[in-house]
Design a protein around this nucleic acid. Structure first.
Lengths: 148, 148
DNA sequence: TTTGCTGCAAATAGTTTGCAGAGAC
DNA sequence: GTCTCTGCAAACTATTTGCAGCAAA
C-alpha cells in the first residue's frame, strides 16, 4: 500500500472510531490531506475540490480540516499572513524549508530536536508538547528568475 | 549602557538614517519594542501606551511596528491565531519556548542551526534567509494550576 | 428516525488603508 | 513651508458561526 493510501486509511479509521459520519465531502478533504505533498492551504484544497464538488463550500473545507486536525491526523503550519498550510502526510512536528517567494514548502527530515526538548524541560520546567522549525529562504527555481 | 538602552538607541539611529521623522508615538513604540522581554503583541503595546498617549490609535502602533520591522530592528513571531508577537530585544532569528496556555514566550539561546542552514543549501539549493524554531508546551506556572 | 453534516450568508477579529488635519524638521 | 505622520473610520481577508434543509447510519 502506497504511503498516501496508508495515511488516507488512517484518517478514515480515526473518523469512524470517533463516530464522525463519512460523507463524500469529508472523504475528499481527507484524501487531499493524505496526498498533500505540497502542503496545501484551505483555499487550495477548496479549489481542487471544485471540479468534483462544484457546490461545496469553503466552510465545509474549514470544518473538515479542523476536525481532522483535532484527531491529530494533520499538521497545521500557521503563517502570520493568514495562509495556513496543512501536512496530512506527516502529521507530527518536523522541520520545513519555505520559499518566501513562491511559498513552496519542503519537508526537512532531521532530528536531535528531542534532545533539545528534554534540555528545555530540565532547565525551564516546561512540559514540551510540540515544536516547529522553519527555515525561510528562496528556492532554486525562484533564484533562477529575477521576478518578484 | 543597559542592553535595552542600546537597542533603543539602535532603533532610533536606524529611523534617522532612513529619514523617518521622530515623533513621540514612534519613540514610544520603539522603546517598548526595545524593552520587550515579554514578546508583546501589538495589542499589548497599544495598551501600555494608553496611559501616556490616550488618543493614540492602534493603526499608529501597527504602522510603527511594521516600519521598525522593515528596518530589521524587530523580529516578528507570527502565530496562526492572529496574535503576532514582537521581539525588539533580539531582532534576529532564534529559538523560542511558548506556553500554549498563558502564551508566555521565553527566548532559548542555542545554535547549531547555522550548520543546518548550510546543509539545506547544499542539498536543496535554497538560499536560506532566516529560520524559526518554536517549542510549544505548558510552562511551570500553568502546570501548577489546573485551570484552563 | 435520529443525529450530525452541508451550503449559504452573515458575523468576527486582526490588520490595513484613505483621508483630512497636525506636527516634525 | 513641505512632507510625513497621526487618528479616525471604513475596508479587507481569513476564518468561524447560525440556521434550515439534507444525508449518513
Amino acid at each position: 500500500m502506497a504511503d498516501f493510501e496508508e495515511r488516507f486509511h488512517s484518517i478514515v479509521e480515526k473518523l469512524k472510531e470517533n463516530n464522525h459520519k463519512i460523507t463524500p465531502q469529508r472523504l475528499a478533504v481527507a484524501k487531499i490531506l493524505a496526498l498533500s505533498k505540497g502542503h496545501p492551504s484551505v483555499e487550495e484544497i477548496y479549489e481542487q475540490l471544485q471540479k468534483d464538488f462544484p457546490t461545496m463550500s469553503l466552510a465545509t473545507v474549514y470544518r473538515n480540516v479542523i476536525l481532522i486536525k483535532s484527531l491529530g491526523e494533520v499538521l497545521e503550519l500557521g503563517f502570520p499572513d493568514g495562509r495556513n498550510r496543512y501536512d496530512g502526510n506527516k502529521p507530527y512536528s518536523h522541520p520545513h524549508v519555505v520559499c518566501v517567494r513562491c511559498k513552496k514548502i519542503l519537508d526537512w527530515d532531521f532530528s536531535n530536536l528531542k534532545d533539545m526538548a528534554k534540555r528545555i524541560t530540565d532547565e525551564t520546567g516546561f512540559k514540551i508538547l510540540s515544536h516547529r522549525l522553519d527555515f525561510f529562504g528562496i528556492c532554486q527555481d525562484c533564484l533562477g528568475k529575477n521576478a518578484v
